[in-house]
């Protein structure tokens, strides 16, 4: 199935996730429609936030795990700042 254009997707109802990759310095930014924009230097690419497949742009590969982190499905109810600041959610796996 062809990917729907990002412009037609409904806007996010929360601030977009946005991260700098701690090793490469690339910026990963969540877009509406389960997409992630990656900007590295002068280059950029847009990727599917679930499968990590490249959608458009000259940058055709980016860190798949960073794409998933920025673009993956949100967890309902997560983001209660007070609870997270309590340190209960200090996790890796």
């Amino acid at each position: 199935m062809a990917d729907a254009p990002a412009e037609s997707a409904p806007a996010l109802n929360r601030p977009p996730r946005k991260k700098r990759h701690p090793l490469s310095g690339a910026i990963y930014e969540e877009l509406p429609g389960n997409r992630v924009r990656v900007t590295k230097g002068e280059s950029w690419g847009i990727f599917d936030g679930f499968t990590t497949r490249h959608i458009e742009g000259p940058l055709t590969y980016a860190d798949p795990h960073m794409i998933i982190w920025v673009g993956g499905k949100p967890v309902e109810g997560l983001g209660h700042r007070a609870e997270r600041a309590r340190g209960i959610e200090i996790v890796h796996d």
């Binding site: 997560l78 997270r84 959610e89 996790v91 890796h92 796996d93």
Partner: peptide, 16 residues
């Protein structure tokens, strides 16, 4: 993430 009771760990598991 369909198991919200896992909190942020759900998203970490998605990476794993």
């Amino acid at each position: 993430a369909d198991a919200p009771e896992l909190g942020m760990l759900a998203r970490v598991f998605n990476q794993d």
